[in-house]
């Protein structure tokens, strides 16, 4: 097994092309997860028991099944009932939905950590529910959540190769197609690993910083 620098240089642009898709999928997936997670968290807090239970069940269900299965389901099964999604959209929705359940748990913990007296002070100063959330509860609940959420973001980033299973041309998929057509695996796979590692290392440094900045002191 020998390393061919020339070949590595040749395939780098196409892998970077894939990396771009990987990053886009991660960012969009994270956005979906952040918003859907909030929806899940609020639904689970609903005073309507049926709503709260249903949301709780849905969260358990999504968490209890593998992401890969969910991706297959969204991309290959939903078309049978007439929902046909482009591969990247299916991937973003699948990852977003999956990680939304983790985000929901983080939100729930963060919201419950805000003292009851804060709700009461908001009420005593006659803020509306909406104002209470936006001006009192969320500004206190969100910062301590940031390190945990960033952690899931990194985890999601590292799971994007799963999207290759539903034909998304992210980095892993590009590397696979290069390998399949040239019968050389060592360069493409090594480069994929290196690119992931570089971004992960940068992210971990960022995470450390976030933890220092926002993390709850224990």
């Amino acid at each position: 097994m020998d390393w061919d620098w020339q070949f590595a240089r040749e395939i780098t642009p196409i892998l970077l092309q894939g990396l771009k898709v990987t990053l886009i999928a991660t960012i969009l997936g994270a956005a979906v997860a952040a918003v859907l997670g909030l929806v899940f968290a609020l639904l689970r807090r609903s005073s309507n028991r049926v709503v709260a239970r249903t949301a709780g069940f849905l969260v358990q269900f999504i968490r209890g099944t593998p992401l890969l299965v969910q991706l297959y389901f969204i991309f290959y099964v939903l078309p049978d009932i007439g929902i046909r999604l482009p591969a990247l959209a299916a991937g973003v929705i699948g990852m977003g939905l999956h990680y939304a359940t983790y985000a929901a748990e983080v939100y729930r913990g963060g919201i419950e950590a805000v003292a009851r007296g804060q709700w009461e002070a908001a009420r005593a100063t006659n803020l509306t529910m909406r104002q209470t959330w936006t001006h009192v509860i969320l500004p206190q609940a969100l910062p301590p959540m940031i390190p945990a959420l960033a952690n899931y973001l990194l985890a999601m980033f590292k799971e994007t190769p799963l999207l290759s299973a539903i034909t998304v041309l992210e980095m892993m998929n590009q590397a696979k197609s290069v390998a399949n057509s040239t019968y050389r695996y060592v360069e493409p796979m090594t480069l994929v690993g290196v690119f992931f590692l570089i971004i992960s290392l940068i992210s971990v440094a960022g995470l450390r910083w976030l933890e220092r900045r926002y993390g709850r002191r224990t």
Binding site: G117, Q118, A121, A124, V136, P139
Partner: peptide
């Protein structure tokens, strides 16, 4: 209006 035993100021 109300003033509470534990103040309940908005800490942020």
């Amino acid at each position: 209006g109300m003033v509470f035993q534990h103040f309940n100021l908005f800490p942020h």
